[in-house]
Simulated scan of single mutants.
Amino acid sequence: MAKVLYSVTLSVDGFITGPDGDMQWMRPYLGPNPEVDDLLPRIGSLLIGRRSHDGDDPHKGEPGEGEAFGGGWSGPAYVVTHRPPSRPETGVTYVDDFAKALTQAKEAAGDKYVNVIGANIAKQCIEAGELDEVLLFYAPVMLGAGTRLFTHPNGQTVPLERISVTKTPLATSLWFKVVQRATP
């Protein structure tokens, strides 16, 4: 059965994008990472928010631009949106309901991970009690503004248990298991 994983690169001050959705801040930190190399074959599908899908690409102008993980992964992708494009992208399924998209992504993933891309989709997974793990790649930079890793009106505590810590020359990663899922 598929597990739902939120894997994301973020600044030390907790931002996953810079102001106005800027992802170019990430470029200096995209490099060899054994943990990413190990993760990619374990991903069975992607669950993506529309803003993330349509947003800035840290691989802009490079081979792999517009592809998941800069071209390091390919497979089924499910974009949650109420505005499907007039020209759908090959390999991408646009679904107008979060629960349906998650179900389809889990079925497609089989016994691998559904990798979540986008803060809002991750938040919806948490609120639905469907997030199993979180993998954070901390880049040694502070952005000061942008999209936070996780926000919830009036706060919400999500207990985590550390699985591993990995240091590379470009980032430090922390992998967590969600201990107690939120109840819908």
Rank of each mutant, 00 (worst) to 15 (best):
Thr93Met: 10
Gly144His: 07
Gly31Met: 13
Gly31Cys: 13
Asn154Thr: 14
Met23Val: 02
Val95Pro: 01
Gln180Val: 15
Ile117Thr: 10
Pro41Glu: 06
Ala122Arg: 07
Glu62Ser: 04
Phe150Arg: 02
Leu136Tyr: 09
Ser45Gln: 10
Ala77Thr: 14
Val134Tyr: 02
Trp175Gln: 10
Ile43Pro: 01
Leu136Cys: 05
Ala105Trp: 08
Met142Pro: 00
Arg148Asn: 02
Pro140Ala: 12
Phe98Tyr: 14
Pro184Asn: 02
Gly144Glu: 04
Asp97Glu: 13
Gly71Glu: 00
Gly129Asp: 07
Thr147Gln: 06
Ser7Tyr: 09
Arg83Asn: 12
Gly75Gln: 03
Leu40Gly: 03
Pro140Asn: 10
Pro76Lys: 12
Gly66Val: 12
Thr168Phe: 09
Thr81Val: 12
Pro84Thr: 08
Leu5Ile: 11
Glu65Gln: 12
Gly129Leu: 11
Gly129Tyr: 08
Gly118Trp: 09
Leu135His: 09
Gln124Val: 00
Pro41Lys: 10
Pro32Arg: 12
Pro169Ala: 11
Val158Thr: 05
Pro88His: 03
Pro159Asn: 07
Gly44Val: 13
Thr9Pro: 02
Pro88Gly: 10
Leu30Gln: 03
Trp25Lys: 01
Pro184Asp: 07
Pro41Asn: 04
Leu5Gln: 05
Arg27Lys: 15
Glu130Pro: 02
Pro84Asn: 09
Lys167Ala: 15
Arg51Asp: 07
Asp13Cys: 08
Glu161Asp: 12
Gln24Met: 11
Gly144Leu: 06
Glu127Met: 15
Lys112Thr: 09
Leu131Ile: 04
Gln24Trp: 07
Ser86Gly: 10
His59Thr: 10
Ser74Arg: 12
Val116Ile: 15
Pro63Asp: 07
Asp97Lys: 01
Thr103Ile: 09
Ser7Glu: 11
Leu47Asp: 01
Ala109Leu: 08
Glu62Asp: 00
Ser11Asp: 05
Val134Gln: 03
Ser7Cys: 07
Met142Leu: 11
Val158Asp: 01
Tyr94Ser: 06
Gly44Ser: 09
Ser74Pro: 02
Ala182Gly: 06
Ala122Pro: 02
Glu107Asn: 01
Glu35Cys: 05
Tyr138His: 06
Gly70Asp: 07
Ala2Lys: 00
Lys112Glu: 03
Val79Phe: 01
Tyr94Asp: 11
Asn120Gln: 15
Asp20Ala: 15
Val36Gly: 00
